[in-house]
């Protein structure tokens, strides 16, 4: 099946442009989506962005497939505040996940080496990129 069709089955493609696909995937399914749908068809992970929209933390994975970018968004409820790691699937996500974790205060479950990346080890303040 085409990648886009599968993405539409699990989640929803909300924007499509030349060389760009933007989709949203339910919080509970993200790890399965990346493992089953993406692992074999994607060249690499390019970046992970995080954004605090007030209610939830939006985590956006940017994957590279040939010449286009596939962006997968997950909304992480602030009450739960955690997400499963994908570093075991894409080792390139190692630093990206650590940065996401410290800047937005999300716990990454199963990360091989959690901890501070850019912030000092004894950082006590709130995560710097959380709003409000």
């Amino acid at each position: 099946m085409e990648l886009k069709e599968e993405l539409n089955l699990i989640g929803k493609i909300y924007r499509e442009e030349e060389k760009e696909v933007w989709s949203i995937v339910p919080y509970k399914k993200i790890r399965d989506v990346i493992e089953d749908v993406f692992l074999s068809r994607i060249n690499r992970i390019s970046s992970i962005s995080g954004y605090d929209n007030g209610k939830e933390i939006e985590v956006i994975y940017h994957f590279v497939k040939d010449n286009s970018l596939i962006n997968i968004k997950v909304l992480v409820p602030k009450k739960l505040n955690k997400i499963e790691t994908i570093t075991d699937l894409f080792p390139g996500a190692f630093l990206l996940e650590r940065e996401l974790s410290e800047m937005l205060g999300i716990k990454i479950i199963g990360h091989p080496k959690p901890g501070k990346l850019f912030l000092p080890e004894n950082w006590k303040g709130k995560p710097p990129l959380r709003k409000g």
Binding site: S46, S47, S49, G50, Y51, P91, G92, F94, L95, L96
Partner: peptide, 12 residues
């Protein structure tokens, strides 16, 4: 604004 720089990707 989230920036992913090339060295950051290559450090691994």
């Amino acid at each position: 604004v989230k920036i992913r720089t090339p060295t950051y990707a290559n450090l691994i």
